[in-house]
Structures are given as C-alpha cells and as structure tokens.
C-alpha cells in the first residue's frame, strides 16, 4: 500500500463523492438488471415455486417453530442465489475497466447497496407469498417481523456481496460461494431467527428491541469491514 488505507477511507465516503461516484454505479447495476429481465423473472419464479412446493408439502403449518424455520431456510437460499450473481457477471475485461475507472470503496459500496435494495424487496415478496400460500401465524406482530426482515436482509446482502467477490476471485465456483458464506452467515441467521420467533409469538418491543439493535450493529460492522477489505481483493 502506498498510503495507509484507513485515512483514505473516510475521505472517499464524503458526501459529494457519494452523490457523484456511488449513485451512478448503483444506477448502472439497476440498468443492467432490468435490461436482462430474464434473471429477475427467474428469481421470482424461484421464490414462488419454492414456496408453492413447501405449501404442497405442509398443507398448512400450525406450529410456529416450523413456520419460522422453513421461512428462514427459504430466505437463506434465495439470498445466496441472488447475491452470488453480483460478481459472476464481472468478466476479466469488465474487471480491468472497473479497476481503472472506479475506487474500490465506491465499487463495493454500490454493489452492497444495490444488493441490499434487491434483497429487501425480494424478502418482502417472499414474506407476502409465504403468508399467502403457507398461511400466516395468528399472533404475529407484523411491524416487528418486517423490521427484522429489512434489517437482516440488508446484513445478508452485505456479507454475501463480499463472499461473492471472494468466490469470483477463486475461479467463480458456485459451491465455493455456499461453503464460504454459510458458516459466516450462521451467527446472523441465529439472531434473525430468534428475533422473528419473538415477532411470531407477538411479544412486546420492550423484550425484543435488543435484537434490532444487534442487527443494526451487524449491518454497520459488515459494511465497514467489506468496504475496507475489498481494496485488497480488487487488485489482481
């Protein structure tokens, strides 16, 4: 390193840089995604058919623990499927272009923010279809469940973006993506599952707010770590 990276880090996330550098990158991601509607449609079909299969298998789920765990297993696989794509499309030539034109912190932040937006929307859709097909829980605290869903899906997106970047450097192996990300995601998943169990049981905010705080903190840690570490993955 020519310069200590930490000092540069705070310099590059100043406000004007965010507006000038990160937003166009996110816009680019969205443009590419919506130009190729097949991938997005594919993910939607994946979500609906997975939930439909589980609805066929279970008919109606009465037990809250089963409902909860099935939901998070489906969510985990959807999240890994979506986010593993985020660096797979970066071919060698594109990588060189990005390397020359963008700052690594801007690049990874734009990827993370884009994945967060995508995953939050898709997780809400998953929740919608899941409660439609499989049935909702009687005591569920919807507001708390949605807060949990938004916070955990953004943290998932952060972790998975970095893991996808690592996997893309190691020959783009799709099973490697799962091997790398599952153990790292497990702590996060445990917090989300506990929080969502509270929401399903209809517990008050006063007993469950600490989970929301942990998820916010994890979001913060993941984004900062990913944007610091990506600089070292970036060079070839």
């Amino acid at each position: 390193m020519e310069k200590p990276f930490i000092s540069l880090y705070f310099q590059v996330i100043e406000r004007k840089f965010v507006g000038r550098m990160i937003l166009p990158l996110i816009k680019k991601e969205f443009t590419i995604e919506f130009r190729q509607k097949s991938t997005l449609a594919g993910i939607l079909v994946y979500i609906v058919s997975t939930i439909f299969i589980s609805a066929l298998c279970f008919n109606k789920i009465i037990h809250p623990v089963v409902w909860n765990s099935l939901f998070w297993v489906i969510f985990l696989f959807i999240a890994v499927n979506i986010s593993s794509k985020s660096f797979m499309t970066e071919t060698k030539g594109k990588g060189l272009y990005n390397y020359l034109y963008y700052h690594p912190t801007h690049f990874i932040l734009s990827k993370i923010l884009y994945n967060m937006a995508l995953l939050v929307v898709l997780s809400l859709l998953t929740f919608f279809f899941y409660s439609w097909f499989v049935g909702s829980m009687p005591n569920i605290n919807i507001a708390m469940f949605l807060v949990n869903l938004v916070l955990s899906s953004s943290a998932f997106a952060g972790v998975l973006s970095l893991m996808s970047a690592i996997a893309s450097k190691a020959n783009n192996n799709i099973s490697l993506m799962a091997i790398l990300s599952f153990p790292v995601l497990m702590p996060l998943l445990l917090v989300s599952i506990k929080f969502s169990k509270h929401a399903i049981d209809g517990l008050a905010w006063s007993v469950s707010y600490k989970y929301a705080l942990i998820l916010i903190m994890l979001n913060f840690v993941v984004v900062v770590l990913a944007s610091l570490l990506f600089n070292y993955l970036w060079k070839d």
Binding site: V159, L162, I166, K169, A170, L180, P183, V184, P187, L188, L190, M217, L218, V221, V222, L225, A226, L229, Y232, L233, K235
Partner: peptide, 18 residues
C-alpha cells in the same frame, strides 16, 4: 495469500461479534 487473509479477517470479526 491475499484472498485467504481477507476471508480470515472477515470471518474472525463476525465470530467475535457473535
């Protein structure tokens, strides 16, 4: 070496938080 180090640091911090 570089990629393994990145994974090592990231995983360790996640573990520590946990």
């Amino acid at each position: 070496a570089r990629i393994a180090a990145v994974y090592n640091v990231f995983a360790f911090v996640m573990m520590l938080v946990f």
